[in-house]
């Protein structure tokens, strides 16, 4: 059976910058797997891709923005959310997605995460949680399960890990979910749902980092991590987020935890401003636009 007779085309390709693949990611890195679910979710929802922007911070996960054939912004470490906030406010027509790592979004960018959730800023945040600072070579993150080894916690971390689902829930996110890279189909569905929702949406994805997290902790290769996710995951949709903590070696609670209606920032702004807010249609373009006559 020859494949050439058929038009075989992976639709994900249309969403990738062809001149940028292959990616820099290591063999078995789960980040690429999450991108499949993301791409299918975007395509399935008939989102206007011309009006879709993706913003990342810095890290292996932060490289996602640069592989997507969208308006891509690769900003600074931890600051993807405030950049995305500005983008969305300046052009509310845009669908704005932040795609970044656990260290980026919850440590250095933790403050922005809290406040964007509190404001219910209309952006979707995808956090690839590989439980480590991968790009810099395997240092501990706020999400590194206690007692795990990392290059900066050679005797194990002396601090417990953060439950980001609980954090953003408490801060006011209107949609909170967690899956692992193993749950490709559920992740696609959740992303599709989140893409259509208005307000601050947060999706955490546990993802293998075979090069640092798995290796440092003798957890085998990427495949072993994926099989482990499959084994340890328990789907609990609607689970209160305080019951979703990730205990080292324990159950991985996954699912859609929070899905509630809350007025997003811009809607509220317009409602409160009422007649104080003037719509501002752009001035009709003048003929001459060759710079100012006076020297600047």
């Amino acid at each position: 059976m020859s494949t050439t007779e058929l038009h075989v085309h992976n639709p994900v390709e249309d969403l990738l910058r062809q001149d940028r693949v292959p990616t820099i990611w290591c063999p078995g890195c789960g980040i690429g797997t999450t991108v499949n679910s993301f791409a299918h979710a975007l395509l399935g929802q008939q989102i206007n891709l011309q009006k879709t922007a993706i913003v990342s911070g810095i890290g292996c996960s932060g490289r996602v923005s640069g592989y997507m054939n969208l308006d891509s912004f690769h900003t600074t470490h931890g600051r993807a959310i405030p950049f995305a906030t500005g983008l969305k406010l300046a052009n509310p027509e845009l669908t704005v997605i932040v795609y970044s790592g656990d260290g980026d979004l919850t440590s250095i960018g933790g403050n922005h995460l809290i406040h964007a959730a509190r404001r219910n800023m209309d952006i979707m945040v995808v956090c690839v949680n590989n439980m480590i600072y991968a790009m810099t070579g395997g240092q501990a993150a706020a999400t590194t399960p206690g007692a795990s080894n990392s290059t900066t916690t050679p005797y194990g971390a002396f601090e417990p890990e953060l439950n980001m689902a609980q954090l953003v829930d408490a801060a006011g996110a209107c949609f909170v979910a967690r899956w692992t890279a193993f749950h490709v189909m559920q992740l696609e569905r959740t992303m599709a749902k989140a893409l259509k929702k208005k307000g601050f949406r947060f999706i955490e994805i546990l993802s293998p980092c075979p090069t640092y997290y798995q290796r440092k902790n003798n957890m085998g290769d990427a495949l072993a991590a994926m099989v482990d996710y499959k084994k340890r995951s328990k789907i609990k949709n609607g689970c209160p987020t305080w019951e979703t903590a990730l205990e080292p070696g324990g159950e991985i609670v996954v699912g859609e935890f929070v899905d509630r209606e809350r007025e997003d920032y811009l809607t509220r702004m317009r409602r409160q401003l009422g007649s104080h807010y003037s719509e501002f249609p752009p001035q009709p373009e003048e003929q001459e636009s060759e710079g100012c006559e006076k020297e600047c």
Binding site: R79, P82, G86, L89, A90, F280
Partner: peptide
């Protein structure tokens, strides 16, 4: 037809404005 947003700190403010520009 514009807006001012008070961000959580100056790190946020100084990059939010760049999002606004690219928007």
């Amino acid at each position: 037809g514009g807006l001012f947003i008070q961000m959580e700190d100056e790190l946020a403010s100084s990059i939010a404005i760049q999002g606004m520009v690219w928007g």
